[in-house]
Structures are given as structure tokens and as C-alpha cells.
Design a protein around this nucleic acid. Structure first.
Length: 417
RNA sequence: CGGGGUGUAGUAUAUCGGUAGUACGUCUGCUUUGGGAGCAGAUAGGCCGAGUUCGAUUCUCGGCACCCCGACCA
């Protein structure tokens, strides 16, 4: 894409009132726009990142045999009354129409997915399976905060699994731990993300969260470096400051943000909707469920918090809006610079490389500063200086390292995943 | 929801109970072109409502919005 055609612009200064690094950088770089507290628009660059995160998650959910669907946000009150959550869930948005009919704006989808699958499940032969979606969730947070980390409307991947018994559910739940770890690895926060024991709510002894260490977080976890697991502060009393896996008492304390969680729902939602199947003996049995969530905005913002530096965003290749930032400079008098940039742009596109081409007639300093702010992993400069050479000047955004590469070498680094 | 803070142009800010100023941005022109450049010109602003006052952006009250701390967060 040509940068001259991007309708968004970057800002030299960040909004004064936001403290969160992710909010400052993402707004400055033109990735997101804040409509109101906790409610954001994803702009072209930001949406590209969001979609890449989404696709990574989708690939992993499909690998886990999840089947993608899309359920509505507007949800009848009756469904929520069936589980009792119409009255007990404090952060539920309730809307009513002209005739007085009440709906919830979905904060989660157990109340919808369970009646849905009830239409299709009747035998033990129909189990197990899992279904998931990417969908906007609404939660009336009393205090939205930390940029896109805690919003009132946000996109979430929520998956629900259905099983004939707890044993089968737990086996699937265990595989999902690995699937989740792979997701966070792929989006670039694997090294700082820990499987964390958390409270199980009313369903199970523990649930599991994936917590990423960052000062922007709002949770406190205790990490066992031996097992690479952690314990959430909320259950530390019953855990007595010990690793639940090896018993180690010397745990490292960190501030972290919850980027995903998995729950054993068991029959909490299948029972009220009477979601049952017939077993081999023809006896009715209640379906056992698990659920698995990842907040996409959370993941997005967390990557910014963990990897961003004082110059701006720093994207891992896997979720960068573009693979390379082609920057031409000094093109005013010398049309050959622009021609060379055009040639390179076309060639890279031809090879399937995603390029953002800064074709604007601006000063070098401005373009470099903006390139650093946007944070695409590789920057190629075309200028009168580079024209005479057969090599390309490539700068690594994360390390700042500059190297001169041949066309083959350039293609290789551009395509490297 | 409790506590604290802040609302002035697209952004960041200044001053003031009496004509609202600066920088960045944006627009026009010229110069400049390897780290947010320069000159000239232009553009655009007091969150809403009530009160005090001859006069309120400024003081008072109410509302709303935003930020921060806390509580909350299947």
C-alpha cells in the first residue's frame, strides 16, 4: 500500500490524559481511535494487526477441531433468565426496544450457544465437538482503563466444547492449554506469558489463565520458573505461596495482564437449558462443557506494552501490518529515486511481500521518525545514496541494526516468518 | 460504585472578572531534503446548564465527559 493514500495520519504528540503506553502509541501511530472510554475504532493499520492476530487464533482453533460460527450480540432476556444471570451479572448491558422487549448485549455467549447446540445434539455419537467465534462483546465496566486493555466493547474469541463426561472434557481442556500457549508464542509474547492457576468461580477448583508479564497489567502473579507456571494472587492464600505443580515455595512476583483464560464449565450452563444426550443405554445424560476465551484487543495492546519502545511500536513479523516499510527519500529532484522505489515496490508485491511504501514527498527525518513509530519490522531505504549500489539498505526496527543486502537476501528476510 | 484530578483550536498548552495567545497539525506559496527543517500568509477554540456580576472562559452550584487510585472483573 502507498502511504500517500492512507487516510489516517500519525501524530507527533500523544493525547495528554492517557497514561497507558498502548493507548499513547496506538493513537499516535494512527492504529486506533478512541470514540469513548473503553471503546475504540480500529483504523487501517490497526485492523491489519487485529486480523493477523485473529487469523493466528483461527488457525490454532481449527487445529483443535473447532468449528467457526458467528452468534448475535442482541440476545433475548429469556435466555439470560434461564441461567439466572439476567439479575446477577452486574456488567450486563440491557437494552429495550419501543415495545418494551428487553435484550442483553452479549458479554459472553453461553446463553446462546447452549440452546443452539441443543438443536443438534441428541446422541453420544454427536459428541464431542467444539465451536468458536470472533465477536464483539459488551461489558459495562465501571472503569474502562489502560487503553485497549480493558474496554466496554471488545472483540473476543470464545470457544465452547461439548463432551459426554468430565474425563473427556478435561482431556480436551488439557490440549487447549498447549493450543493457547502456541497462540501466544506466535503473536510474539510467548517468552513473557505464563499458564496461571486462578480461581475457578463456581465451576471448578481452578481455572487457568494466560498471564503476560507487563507493568501495564492489573493482576499480580507468582511465577515458578522451574515449571513455567504461575499462581494468581486471587488464590494465593489457599495455595500458600507454593507452586501447584512442584510445590516450590520460592516464587517470583510479577505484575501481569490476563490475555486468555480457559474454564471447566461442566454442567453450569448445559443443565439449566437441559442440554442432554442419550448414552449407549439410551439414558439421558447432561452434556459437559468447557470454554476458552482470548481477548483480541487485550492481546493487541499487550504486544504493544511488551515490545514497544521509546520511539514507537515494534511489531513481531507475525502480526505486523506490513512485512516491510519501503521508504524513499530525496525524491524531489531525482525521479530515478522514485522510479527505483516503484520498481522495488512492484517486485516485492510480485513476490507476495506485504509492503507499505512511503512515497510521500517529505523530509527524511520526518519519514524515519514516522517509520519507527509505526514499527514495521523491516525498513528499506531508497535514496540517491543507495541507487549507486547493487544492495539494499535494510534496518531492523527491533534491534536498530542496519545491513546491506542483495536482492536474494532481501527477499529471504522479507519472507521469513 | 467510593476517592482524587482535569475539561480552552485536530493535538499539546498559556493568560485573564473586560478584544483569548503560543507551538505542532492542516491549507497556500517559496526554500530545504539521511532523523519530526525554515520563511511568509491562512485556518480553527473556552464541555453543557443555572447562578453571582454592568460584564464569566475565569468565581459558585449542578450535570456530563475524560484520566488516575481503589473496589469490581463468568
Amino acid at each position: 500500500m502507498k502511504q500517500s493514500q492512507l487516510f489516517t495520519k500519525t501524530h507527533k504528540e500523544a493525547p495528554a490524559d492517557d497514561i497507558a503506553k498502548n493507548a499513547k502509541l496506538l493513537v499516535r501511530a494512527g492504529f486506533v481511535d478512541k470514540l469513548q472510554a473503553g471503546v475504540y475504532t480500529y483504523l487501517p493499520l490497526g485492523l491489519r494487526v487485529l486480523k493477523k492476530i485473529e487469523n493466528i487464533i483461527r488457525e490454532e482453533m481449527n487445529t483443535a477441531r473447532g468449528q467457526e460460527i458467528l452468534m448475535p450480540s442482541l440476545q433475548p432476556k429469556e435466555n439470560w433468565q434461564t441461567t439466572g444471570r439476567w439479575d446477577t451479572m452486574d456488567d450486563l448491558y440491557k437494552v429495550s426496544d419501543a415495545s418494551g422487549r428487553e435484550n442483553a448485549l452479549g458479554p459472553t455467549h453461553e446463553e446462546i450457544v447452549v440452546p443452539l447446540v441443543k438443536q443438534f445434539v441428541s446422541s453420544y455419537r454427536d459428541l464431542p465437538f467444539a465451536t468458536y467465534q470472533f465477536q464483539n462483546k459488551f461489558r459495562m465496566e465501571l472503569r474502562a482503563k489502560s487503553g485497549i486493555l480493558r474496554g466496554r466493547e471488545f472483540i473476543m474469541k470464545d470457544m465452547y466444547s461439548f463432551h459426554r463426561d468430565e474425563e473427556d472434557m478435561i482431556a480436551y481442556y488439557e490440549t487447549m492449554k498447549g493450543v493457547y500457549a502456541r497462540v501466544f508464542e506466535r503473536v510474539g509474547i510467548g517468552a513473557t506469558t505464563f499458564l496461571t492457576f486462578a480461581s475457578g468461580g463456581s465451576f471448578a477448583k481452578y481455572s487457568h489463565e494466560f498471564q503476560t508479564v507487563t507493568s501495564a497489567g492489573e493482576d499480580t502473579i507468582y511465577i515458578c520458573d522451574k515449571c513455567r507456571v504461575a499462581v494468581n494472587n486471587e488464590i494465593i492464600e489457599e495455595q500458600k505461596h507454593a507452586c501447584p505443580q512442584c510445590g516450590e515455595k520460592n516464587l517470583r512476583t510479577e505484575t501481569s495482564v490476563e490475555v486468555g483464560n480457559i474454564f471447566e464449565l461442566k454442567t453450569r450452563f448445559s443443565a439449566p437449558f437441559d442440554l442432554t444426550y442419550k448414552d449407549e443405554e439410551g439414558k439421558d445424560r447432561t452434556v459437559v462443557m468447557g470454554c476458552y476465551g482470548i481477548g483480541l484487543g487485550r492481546v493487541f495492546g499487550t504486544v504493544v506494552e511488551v515490545l514497544g519502545d521509546d520511539k514507537g511500536l515494534v511489531w513481531p513479523r507475525s502480526i505486523s501490518p506490513f512485512a516491510v516499510h519501503l521508504v524513499e527519500i530525496g525524491n524531489t529532484d531525482d525521479a530515478t529515486v522514485h522510479d527505483e522505489a516503484q520498481r522495488l515496490y512492484d517486485e516485492l508485491l510480485n513476490k507476495g511481500v506485504e509492503v507499505l511504501w512511503d512515497d510521500r514527498n517529505l523530509r527524511a527525518g520526518e519519514k524515519f521518525a514516522e517509520s519507527d513509530l509505526i514499527g514495521i519490522p523491516l525498513r528499506i531505504v531508497v535514496s540517491s545514496k543507495t541507487l549507486s549500489s547493487d544492495t539494499f539498505e535494510v534496518k531492523d526496527r527491533a534491534t536498530g541494526e542496519v545491513s546491506m543486502l542483495s536482492w536474494e537476501e532481501l527477499l529471504a528476510v522479507c519472507k521469513k516468518q
